[in-house]
């Protein structure tokens, strides 16, 4: 059984998950975190739209309900599996080629800082087809461009089914932009992550011989 600490990332298949969430995020994230399997081996990097002065006591609650360690990013921190990373309020979060984070106070993008697009785009350039982007509930159009870019780089994009989202605008906007490979309920996303973990995180390029391509099989 894995302990709740960071470890280096595995070699093949998917390497990381980026996730964007806005209005309605608290309930959606709580649900997803508690659904994560023990020893989940991909770092989960989250941009949540919050007020610049938001305090993050919620992390204590997340940590008591998530098998991974939930924390806010420090500048230049190394990205490790076993963690859920959150962008700090009022900073953009970016991924560097050497798999560390950097932060910026560049102008807001789609009225947001942190912006989902900024994280998704920088992560797409680093992990290309080895990246999964997940866009959840929200009342913004942030994230659509980033999802498009992840998709263009061969990564996998999942939008929360707007019919099941507390605020449907954000995932709907990505779907309208033709940027979502899969449209799943929170329940479906939870199941997907479990199967991903069980099968060794195969991406679409590194399918293991004889193994069912469960990514294509996931019901949309």
């Amino acid at each position: 059984m894995h302990s709740k600490q960071g470890h280096d990332m595995k070699k093949n298949g998917y390497k990381a998950i980026v996730m964007g969430v806005s209005a309605g995020g608290l309930a959606a994230l709580s649900r997803l975190f508690s659904d994560l399997p023990e020893g989940f081996a991909l770092p989960l990097i989250v941009v949540q739209h919050v007020h610049p002065t938001a305090d993050r006591q919620i992390f204590d609650y997340f940590n008591s309900n998530c098998p991974l360690t939930v924390k806010e990013v420090e500048d230049k921190e190394k990205i490790l599996a076993g963690y859920v990373y959150f962008a700090p309020p009022d900073y953009h979060l970016l991924v560097e080629r050497d798999k560390t984070f950097s932060l910026s106070i560049d102008p807001r993008v789609t009225y947001s800082r942190p912006a989902i697009d900024v994280l998704f785009e920088s992560a797409a350039y680093v992990w290309s087809s080895r990246l999964i982007g997940i866009l959840l509930t929200g009342a913004s159009s942030d994230g659509s461009r980033g999802m498009q870019l992840i998709k263009a780089h061969g990564g996998l994009t999942i939008a929360q089914d707007p019919a099941t989202a507390e605020y449907p605008v954000m995932p709907q906007s990505a779907i309208d932009a033709n940027a979502a490979d899969k449209i799943l309920s929170l329940d479906g996303i939870g199941k997907f992550l479990k199967t991903l973990s069980k099968t060794g995180y195969p991406d679409r390029q590194t399918k293991i011989q004889g193994q069912a391509d469960f990514i294509s099989d996931v019901e949309t």
Binding site: L94, V95, E96, R97, S102, S104, V118, E121, S122, Y125
Partner: peptide, 9 residues
């Protein structure tokens, strides 16, 4: 400079 921001700009 940190590359990711500069590349974006």
């Amino acid at each position: 400079y940190a590359r990711a921001s500069i590349e974006r700009r």
